[in-house]
Amino acid sequence: MKAIEFTGVSFRYEEEGPFVIEKLNFSVEEGEFVAVLGHNGSGKSTLARLANGLLVPDEGAISVFGTPLTEKTLFEARRNVGVVFQNPDNQTVATIVEDDVAFGAENVGLKREEIGERIEFALRAVGMEAYRGATVARLSGGQKQRVAIAGVLALKPRAIVLDESTAMLDPRGRREIVDVVTRLNKEEGITVVLITHFMEEALLADRAVVMNRGEIVMQGKPEEIFARQEELVTYNLALPRIGVICNRLRAAGMPVSNTLSAEQLAEEIAKCV
């Protein structure tokens, strides 16, 4: 089944304004891990807001797990597709970790005991079970974002969309988040859409999608995308250093794969030599 499906979707923020997303066809399979890459203003964040009904498309249709997204199915869609946003400080409602994680579950009217179980499940899934009673403000950026993911998981979504959730974090925090979502995808079978402008985060995805000016311009396995360096540059996406080295080595005739991990590249070079 398709987890999220956009058919001919167009959207603009102001009437008469330019379309941020134009006639977009895009779909994510259930259980898939998709990375959406794009420069600022490519429409990738709008994509996240359309997927769970925070924005309503001007044209076209969106369906979520087979149900067309309409005003009536809005809340079903929001329960199924959780969105984690960019700034951890602007998406926590409560001061204490468990209160914040409970927020979504309280909103849908679950019973007390069940909310407790959901909190436990969600915090364990993001590896924050030891911080249940902690003050959110005292956590690191990566930990705050993990709490935000837990807050979404408490609604037991079948898919989560991370809208540049790593953009404000340090490298360590970014790695924490990517590890958590990868595990959620592999172990819990949750569909993941990771929107980012850090290319190395796309490496673990099943599929990478590159957006530019509201359109999908490239699509395929992350390694394949990274190999097309010149094309990426035209969309204002710079390949990380390691990727550039890989491409150069290959051009010089060394049979290395398209990896973005320094360790793997080192191993492959060692084998060649």
Partner: peptide, 22 residues
């Protein structure tokens, strides 16, 4: 942004909301 995040977590402001801590 907070409003969006609350909406995304199914906040409606209706009376159907339950409380975790009684």
């Amino acid at each position: 942004e907070l409003g969006d995040a609350m909406d995304a977590r199914c906040y409606t402001g209706s009376g159907k909301r339950t409380k975790y801590k009684k």
